[in-house]
Design a protein around this nucleic acid. Structure first.
Lengths: 219, 219
DNA sequence: CATCCGGGTGTAACAGTGTTACAGAGAACG
DNA sequence: CGTTCTCTGTAACACTGTTACACCCGGATG
């Protein structure tokens, strides 16, 4: 009756099990995404990989959007809870931000999925909870807490969005390369540090720490 | 001989001009993107809109990737230079960040194009130049300048990436809504300010200002 | 036993995508 | 005249998400 059932018969001794289960579909879909990105995930490839016709996929998961929603939720669950370390409010909050960033950077396919489905708020939720808790523990409530939480998360998002793009990965647009060369004439150290990767980790720490300190100071 | 010529004969009185020019293709492509987003731009729709067969489009612009690259460059040129206002280094730098953010938010189609082609470094270039200039004028050079420029731009990127997603637009995932409801029980003002839009402008100002001040302080 | 029902699968199609091999028109030029 | 070059059209390939429809087959029910 209802589509996208949860594969009711887990082959409990009975002779007639379904040829694929909903979980098998999700597992294979996840593997495809991790190997080839979101663009590499097509319903036909997925079906072929499972040795099954396309319609079976649709029967189990509904459609592509629902499939991707489910994948996002899975990734978010499997990554567990945010680890908060440190004793002072500042270090604890910074550790959340770092964990948030690392968690995303370590799962490039997650970004790919999230972007396609517009689920960024889901992706930021775990760290969001932790931040609310820590700021409350530090005595920050109400509108000021909202501002603080958002400020930190916007910073995390900026890093994960840009730190690979701006930190000179191999094939930058010609205009950018030209500008970097121009900068290098006046201030070679600046050009070098704009271009080379490796900095982001320290940069992130400095940026978030100074911001959190300033957010906690004004009371 | 070479493909993707620049439409050499602008119909200079001569009887036989091409039915479409490269510029006409780009103009129409831009209109389609602004109306329907990147996904609404297909080579066939574009050709139909111009009353021409698909192959003409390919002859003029090469392929879809090249077309989008060209569109990005066009948008970036038409938006002119960054306006820097204010007298103190802090206000001048904050004004650059604001202009950078506004410029992107005012052109949602730009983000769409950039994301599809991975040209974020091109999108951030104009503000990047301005920031380098201002920080230099404020006496910040070398590695510290690189850190400062990147910190500011990462913040801008975070805002433009998340401020619409996190600031409760209509259809948030159920999990997020549930969490907001839960927060509202303990701290309704917090939940309200996490959810409602309108805040971003002030938030952005506070966040960037405090960060820039801290970046300029340590010398 | 026969019948029906419904879970799960397959065939084949529709409409759409980017891209290209190829043929052709028509002007320009030798 | 013949060749060359620019530009366009036809038609196809391989791919995408999605669905209408028929089918098999096991379990429940008559």
């Amino acid at each position: 009756m209802e589509r996208t059932r949860a594969t009711p018969k887990p082959a409990q001794g009975g002779p007639a099990g379904p040829r694929v289960t909903r979980d098998a579909v999700l597992d294979t879909a996840m593997r495809l995404v991790m190997e080839t990105g979101t663009e590499g995930l097509s319903m036909r490839k997925l079906a072929a990989e499972l040795g099954v016709a396309v319609t079976s996929i649709y029967w189990h998961v509904g459609n592509r959007e629902a499939l991707i929603d489910e994948l996002v939720e899975r990734v978010l669950q499997d990554m567990g809870t945010i680890r908060v370390t440190g004793r002072t409010p500042v270090t604890r909050i910074v550790s959340i931000a770092q964990a948030n960033r690392r968690m995303i950077l370590d799962r490039p396919h997650l970004i790919s999925l999230v972007r396609e489905r517009g689920l960024e708020s889901l992706m930021m939720l775990p760290a969001r909870r932790a931040l609310v808790r820590e700021f409350a523990a530090a005595g920050v409530h109400g509108a000021r807490a909202a501002l603080a939480v958002q400020a930190v998360q916007f910073q995390v998002a900026g890093f994960v969005m840009l730190e690979r793009a701006l930190t000179g990965h191999p094939q930058e647009p010609a205009q950018v390369q030209a500008w970097l060369a121009e900068v290098a004439e006046g201030d070679p150290e600046l050009a070098d540090n704009l271009h080379t990767p490796g900095a982001p980790d320290a940069l992130f720490d400095v940026a978030v720490r100074s911001m959190v300190e300033s957010l906690l100071r004004e009371d």
